[in-house]
Design a binder for these strands. Structure first.
Length: 544
RNA sequence: UGGGGUAUCGCCAAGCGGUAAGGCACAAGACUUUGACUCUUGCAUGCGGUAGUUCGAAUCUACCUACCCCAGCCA
């Protein structure tokens, strides 16, 4: 095993130490999602950590569905999870299900009972809770704690056989009711649930708890490093207890290492709340552009590499940090800048008439598909006397630093002519109806060099679309709390415009970057829904 | 009043006793038929605080302070 690998974070550092001290031959990690919701950006971080860490040490990663609670899980989510992991570009070595180990886990429980380290408890849930003690006071031992091994064995078998109702009995590890760590106060490791499992059917009516199934699954698979998020730090002591006390476990003991989960400013990352938002109809579905699910990012045109790059940039550490969304945006913008085909979109249009251009005339104007690429392909835009320009590109009363179109001012139409705004025509409400402009054919001779360049579209040729800009779910610094659902997605969280794009975009298949003067709509993809086209934008880069 | 953690630039984050990497953001300038991109430059005498050890401390020690997680038969 190569020990000359330079660790780049504390996890890799720990692994390097383990390789030296334990003589590990192969590094194995696992990504263990519970299939009870769609993949989100927080998963993506964990996926990257799990897969990239193993990859760095020339090891491998398993995908394991942590399906130990049949009441919340379904096949739909395992498909989505697998699809999203593949989409991110990762390949798991083995696909496992914790439910495949139910028999093994059951045998481990029996082994624990035989050692006198587990007992069947008849206490009801609220009684267990009451007797657990508090954070500062020790708990009380269950009156069933000292049943004989034989009785425990018999009872546990009967639990499996379905002799008891839900909640009537549990199997508990016999550890220490006065342990300062509450997880060690005789934790429940098996509960009775007469619920059909999406893979096991009705084969089982007892299901192992996470704290029992997880370490056993890791060890069973030969996982060497079990990477999880910080909230499981308290569970590590139990994790190790399970592994240390199961005598029928093969192989090396896995080591659990915790890292901080991802927080993004203004974003709720929680499967539970996604369920509420989706089920409550607050959002369109799991791929609603406002949700930070991978399905949503995919729909908005984010690429897998940009998500991966984001995960790399934010790093891995143990401090509870909140990253700013613009880091992700920078990742996708950077990539799109280099690769994406660019097209013009006029998001919020105003009409411009060119008074000195023949009404029936059109001409083709060659536009580069991506000016950052040398010799990039070009496509045609059609110029006519009837145009749209962006409302923001005209100011009736310009500020000093504004150098786009102003009354009697000059501006360059991208790829085409320099025009002068001769007249502003208002409607009866005092809003701008259209602009009358003229082409300055002899700008060179006159020495006119406009500072600004704006984009434009020929009105007769433009394709009508709807653009929707979404804002973050939460305001800056706001923390999501239950009961805030209706406040989260308010009418102001979306602005919709009737917009126009050039016909060229209809022929494009991949991601596009839509051009506006001074802005990039970074994450856009033309998608056809029913009879309308939508460009869903998440954020705009305001360059001034 | 218990246990487990974390504190380094606006936001992430390296650093592991030898005198504060990098990215994002921001600012200034150059270039420009996208105010984009690209380029160049700037951006912590300071590492939660206070003492101490040391020739030398973000790194070691002590004591504080702030914040996060834990009392599901969820994961």
């Amino acid at each position: 095993m190569d020990t000359n690998i330079t660790p780049s974070n504390f996890i890799e550092q720990a692994i390097v130490e383990d390789i030296k001290t334990k003589g590990l031959k192969k590094i194995v990690t696992r990504f263990p999602p519970e299939p009870n919701g769609y993949t989100h950006i927080g998963h993506a971080k964990a996926i990257c950590i799990d897969f990239l860490t193993a990859e760095k040490f020339h090891g491998y990663t398993n995908l394991r569905m942590d399906d130990t609670n049949p009441s919340k899980e379904s096949e739909v989510y395992v498909k989505a999870l697998m699809n999203d992991i593949k989409w991110l570009g990762f390949k798991w070595k083995h696909l496992y299900y914790a439910s495949d180990y139910y028999e093994f886990i059951y045998q481990c429980a029996i082994d624990l009972i035989k050692q006198g380290k587990a007992f069947v408890c008849d206490l009801a849930a609220d009684q267990v809770s009451n007797m657990r003690g508090t954070l500062t006071e020790p708990g009380q031992e269950s009156p069933y704690r000292n049943r004989s091994i034989e009785e425990n064995l018999k009872l546990f078998e009967e639990m499996r056989a379905g002799k008891f109702a839900d909640g009537e009995k549990t199997l508990r590890a016999k550890i220490d009711m006065s342990h300062p760590n509450i997880n060690m106060r005789d934790p429940v490791i098996y509960r009775i649930m007469h619920v059909r499992h999406f893979r096991q059917g009705d084969k089982w009516c007892i299901y192992p708890m996470y704290d029992f199934a997880h370490p056993l699954s890791d060890a069973y698979e030969g996982v060497t490093h079990s990477l999880c998020s910080l909230e499981f730090e308290d569970h590590r002591i139990l994790y190790n207890w399970v592994i240390d006390n199961c005598r029928i476990l093969p192989g090396v003991k896995p080591r659990q290492i915790e890292f901080a989960r991802l927080n993004i400013d203004g974003t709720v990352i929680s499967k539970r709340y996604f369920h509420e938002l989706v089920d409550g109809g607050y959002v369109d579905g799991w791929d609603d552009p406002r949700l930070p699910t991978l399905a949503s990012f995919r729909r908005k045109g984010y690429t897998p590499t940009s998500i991966r790059e984001f995960c790399t940039r934010i790093g891995v550490a143990k401090s509870n940090s909140v990253v700013q969304p613009h880091i992700l945006e920078a990742c996708i913008r950077e990539e799109l800048n280099k690769n994406a085909v660019r097209a013009v979109a006029v998001i919020d249009p105003i009409k411009v008439n060119i008074t000195n251009y023949p009404a029936n005339k059109t001409e083709k104007i060659k536009v580069s598909n991506n000016p950052t690429i040398n010799n990039s392909k070009k496509h045609d835009m059609i110029f006519s006397n009837e145009l749209y320009i962006e409302r923001e590109d005209f100011m009736a009363e310009p500020s000093p630093k504004f150098f786009r179109l102003t009354p009697n001012g000059y501006v360059r139409l991208m790829g085409a002519y320099i025009i002068k705004c001769d007249e502003v025509i208002y409607d009866e409400n005092g809003n701008i109806d259209h602009l009358n402009c003229s082409i300055v054919y002899d700008a060179k001779e006159q020495g006119i060099k406009p500072k600004g360049t704006i984009h434009w579209l020929s009105r007769p040729h433009a394709i009508k679309v709807t653009t929707r800009k979404f804002f973050n779910l939460l305001k800056e610094g706001e923390v999501f709390e239950s009961g805030m659902l209706d406040k989260i997605i308010n009418p102001n969280s979306m602005v919709e415009h009737t917009s126009f794009v050039e016909p060229f975009v209809l022929k494009q298949k991949g991601n596009m970057q839509f051009v506006r003067m001074g802005y990039y709509i970074e994450d856009s993809k033309l998608s056809k829904k029913t009879d309308r086209y939508y460009i869903e934008t998440v954020s705009l880069k305001d360059s001034k």
